[in-house]
Design a protein around this nucleic acid. Structure first.
Length: 443
RNA sequence: GGAACGGUGGCAGAGUGGACGAAUGCAGCCGCCUUGAAAGCGGCCGGGCGCAAGCCUCGGGGGUUCGAAUCCCUCCCGUUCCGCCA
């Protein structure tokens, strides 16, 4: 959520920032929110004045009754009773307006960072680095999409995945499954220097899914387990962001950096049939996520560091890649500033988005109520709290990196060489060979 | 899933309708004492919103009442026992 106080102090600034997202209807929502906020302020003042009076009377009644002055007490009680009706009316109006304001605010996206590039959609996302490692001419043996080559190698068995679970589920087998797990290990080991490893729950409450921004607006994108009012996490970002929900963190403890390997579940409601071949888009996939809780001052350099970490993972695998920045029109709802890493897959002849690193300013922290306590130079706590900044990104998302490896490391004979960086995790497999009768190919 | 008992400040723990935003202890902060420290003594000491007045906050929500930490309803969470299970 954006700070509703900005609606009072800088409405024009909020609207100017949100206008850059290119959704005109948003501005009307902001105006409506400002109107509700002003009304709420007025109702609250009137309600509190009555409460104050009732509180005073109640204390007085207590005193009078102790002194045995029942008659005076009864007079005051009668007055208080009348105030009670008025208070109830104002209180329920307050609740209505406050709920309406919150609902509206929950749907209003974050303000883009001033340096985020303007643009209407993904075609406007500028390339900020690369392409790096791209061949001038791609040899023919790399021009085989992984859904063909991996299936032929017996390491991708989507036909049976679909039988088991339905469309858009994948299954890796043998060296393919080992490769997928190796990528996770690799991603974790690469970031263990500054991150605490966490194994969070995969099912979360509605409140948790609201904090990161998926609810209420994007409920259709997530799998719901209605009977138990739980949701399957679409990314480890969701549970990790809520680790410190409703807590106050010391500025001296920041940044707090965590990483997690988890499954990610996505209904892909709007994208059925698009990019669904092979490992490009699936309902369930594995990913290593990195996340930071930071002061506003620490956030920019952390963003840079996290992009560098995601880049290091891809570069370390020897894959051709480029880094793009997300323009204001293409940004996710919660994002303040965002970068993607794309890997080139020669078989599919496509740039695959394999990592997305974002700074959320205090947008998620306000929704999840993760606060920050500052201390002055003498180490004394400063009065009041503010919301922390959150940042997160995929350190390594398995499926598309897996696909890119299969396509970029394909040899002329159809086998796939395992990148050096993954060898320690591959149980000695250096090259994924085609199955043969002699080796006992799977049926 | 069933039963019993619980949920109060950073922690421990009193408080069963009014003098309670909350005893007491520990921790923390300031001062005295001391060469320094400990001990001792005196004082301060939860948080949110708000310019302020003030409002809110004893797990969450609702109710009763002039007035609720306290009574009622409900939900959540915890502990123990039973059941089930990895």
């Amino acid at each position: 959520m954006i700070d509703h106080r900005l609606l009072r102090t800088d409405l024009a600034g909020v609207k100017a920032a949100l206008a850059r997202r290119g959704r005109p209807s948003l501005l009307a929502e902001v105006d409506e929110a400002a109107r509700l906020d002003a009304r709420l302020l007025d109702i609250t003042a009137r309600r509190d004045a009555i409460r104050s009076r009732v509180n005073t009377i109640s204390k007085e009644v207590g005193r009078l009754r102790r002194d045995g002055d029942v008659d005076s007490a009864e007079v005051l009680q009668a007055e208080s009773r009348e105030l009670g009706a008025e208070e109830r009316a104002l209180a329920s109006e307050h609740d209505e307006v406050s709920t309406a304001l919150r609902d509206l605010l929950l749907g209003i996206p974050n303000l883009p960072h001033p340096d985020a590039p303007d643009g209407a959609d993904d075609a406007d996302n500028p390339i900020v680095s690369g392409p790096i490692g791209l061949l001038d001419t791609v040899p023919d043996h790399l021009r085989v999409p992984h859904w063909e080559s991996a299936t032929a190698l017996g390491i991708l068995d989507n036909e049976r995945a679909v039988k088991i679970s339905g469309a858009m589920f994948t299954m890796q087998r043998g060296a393919g499954a080992t490769l997928a797990r190796a990528l996770c290990q690799y991603g974790l080991d690469l970031n263990a220097d500054v991150h605490e490893e966490v194994r969070p729950p995969s099912l979360v409450s509605s409140a948790t899914l609201t904090a990161t921004g998926q609810l209420p607006k994007f409920a259709d994108d997530a799998y719901a387990i209605e009977r138990d009012d739980l949701w399957c996490i679409p990314t480890a970002e969701v549970p990790l962001t809520s680790i410190y929900a409703d807590e106050v963190l010391d500025d001296t403890a920041l940044p707090i950096r965590v990483m997690a390997h988890s499954s990610s579940f996505r209904r892909e409601a709007g994208s059925a049939g698009r990019d669904t071949r092979g490992m490009l888009r699936a309902h369930e996939f594995d990913k290593v996520e990195i996340l930071a809780f930071a002061t506003p001052e620490q956030a920019p350099s952390l963003l840079t560091d996290m992009v560098a970490r995601a880049e290091r993972a891809i570069a370390g695998l020897g894959l051709p890649y480029r880094i793009i920045e997300i323009c204001t029109g293409d940004m996710g709802q919660s994002h303040h500033r965002s970068f993607d890493i794309e890997v080139y897959a020669p078989g599919a002849d496509a740039w695959l988005e394999v990592s997305s690193i974002s700074w959320f300013s205090d947008y998620q922290a306000r929704r999840g109520n993760v606060r920050l306590k500052r201390h002055d130079a003498d180490g004394k706590p400063v009065k009041g709290t503010e919301f922390v900044h959150t940042l997160n990104g995929s350190a390594l998302a398995v499926p598309r990196v897996w696909a890119a490896i299969i396509e970029n490391y394909r040899n002329v004979d159809g086998s796939v060489t395992v990148p050096e960086a993954l060898r320690p995790y591959m149980r000695g497999i250096e090259c994924i060979e085609a199955p043969s009768e002699a080796k006992g190919a799977r049926p």
